[in-house]
Design a protein around this nucleic acid. Sequence first.
DNA 1: TCCGGCACCTGTACGC
DNA 2: TGCGTACAGGTGCCGG
Length: 284
Amino acid sequence: MPELPEVETVRRGLEAVAVGRTITSVEVFGPRTVRRHAGGPADFVARLRGRRVEAAARRGKYLWLSLDDGAALLAHLGMSGQFLAVAAGTPDPPHLRARFRFAGAGPELRFVDQRTFGGLALAEAGEGVPAAVAHIALDPLDPAFDRGAVFDRLRRRRTGIKRALLDQSLVSGVGNIYADEALWRARLHYARGADTLRRAEAERLFDAVDDVFAAALRAGGTSFDSLYVAVNGESGWFERSLEVYGREGEPCSRCGASIRREPFMNRSSYRCPRCQRTPRDPRW
DNA sequence: TCCGGCACCTGTACGC
DNA sequence: TGCGTACAGGTGCCGG
């Protein structure tokens, strides 16, 4: 499941594979992948032809290729999106959604997406980020990320801390997996009221998010199956380092208590019942 | 304005 | 074997 470390790994791959090259042709297979592109598939294809890729950038889980006409090819991997750089003529995989060919030698780029939550669009470049991404908050890896400002906004939220962490307009890049991992590291229950968080606890949580992102990035991301791979097709290895996510019934590495899985926001939360005790009053 | 619930989507695992 | 169901979950929309 692509969260910030996975998307950053993909961005680095795109930087190596696409930047400096000129797009000669684009194919889009089915309208859903470009559903966020206002002009539809035909316009998407026409506007990309002949454009040179200047840079590969990212904010949170969104990434984009800056083009020489000032536009940006915006992408979100959703649940299962993959960019794959492969030699032309390699057989098409299932769930191929788009193909980009470039001038000269080198691989073509494919966008493959099994669950189709991912998407591509052409966006107008804004101040630093495309306008379509302006609502996404800075992510913790961004040098401009301001812990104090985020803490102030957290304290005004009347909701649980995990729900707030997953809100990309507050902090970007955190998804269900790394939220659980960071909360475990910070010894916080997911339902703890965001407005009750003390500054020291927030610092602990920010440190935990930083640590888990940095470790995952070093490992090239988390892979549970073939749904997340880097641009070169390789899987990440961070799954081996997960402490709670997907480990229901296994002992907590800190205290030995059995990890629990609990329903949360129509998905699951994993936590240690001893290290992350249920708040007696969720509002604390 | 903020918050919570839900649709979107497909492959896999599991129970009957 | 085959069918039905639950589950995985990021984002955006909608209703309260």
